[in-house]
Nucleic acid binder design. Structure first.
Lengths: 124, 124
DNA sequence: TTCTTATTTAAGCAAATACTAAAATAATAA
DNA sequence: TTATTATTTTAGTATTTGCTTAAATAAGAA
């Protein structure tokens, strides 16, 4: 930081201090939330999340076939989302099924609705 | 793609084809949405968005001071979000004020509520 | 036990991202 | 006009991310 003396003459010092307090109070929350959103902000992972929302559960192999991508690449995406609690797993013999955690299913619903709406529009 | 013949014996072919169709129909929508979410999925930008949600409008200089970051770095973040229509600008003499576009204010509201709730919790 | 199927993990690399520093633009004041 | 203030843009660099390939793990079948 070279130059944080840029503060405008007309700057609202009270406002700036209030904001600084907010940022320092919520710092970890910002990081945690941003990290979760960055996982959703990737088109491969967004597709996976939406497909799991629609189909309830899918395995790596299904997703690899659907998305036309390497199983390893998909597996690595799934791991990230599982580690961040976006996904649950359930084993059925050799097959591991992934599903959306209920919390993220709710939180991401507005985005899934956008996708649903677009789907209808494009089908007409 | 070396090996997309991984398909399980028990794979639900109908399900997989339905999913493939969904993905191909919505492909651009996925990309567009993911791109928007990737902008929100960065803690600096999430902070900026939340501060604009709370304060209605702020300039680069305010944000630079609040976040303790280089003006140039903030300006580059703001540009990305303006280009993707997350932000509006309004000039007041030499100062350029940024604000949230109404659409994204609504769409991001559930996340801002999480932040609001955490703020209250930590203040108690 | 060995073989097959399903999946994960590790290593390596290319592309994307975020930041710094310096130069450029733009509006106002002297 | 020149100087000041507010901001953006460009170029360079370090870090992060996403994918490929190959090796490792894990469960069931022969």
């Amino acid at each position: 930081m070279e130059n944080n003396s840029c503060i405008r003459q007309q700057a609202d010092i009270k406002q700036i201090n209030r904001c600084k307090e907010t940022v320092s109070e919520l710092n970890e929350t910002f990081d945690y939330l941003a990290n979760g959103l960055s996982l959703v902000g990737n088109s491969v992972r967004l597709k996976i999340l939406y497909l799991l929302f629609e189909e309830k559960r899918l395995c790596v192999c299904d997703l690899s076939d659907i998305l036309g991508m390497n199983i390893s690449a998909i597996s690595q995406h799934l791991r990230k989302m599982k580690d961040r609690n976006l996904l649950d797993t359930e084993r059925d013999a050799q097959t591991i099924f992934y599903s959306l955690t209920p919390e993220y299913s709710i939180l991401l619903n507005p985005f899934f609705e956008i996708l649903d709406k677009n789907k209808v529009l494009e089908t007409i």
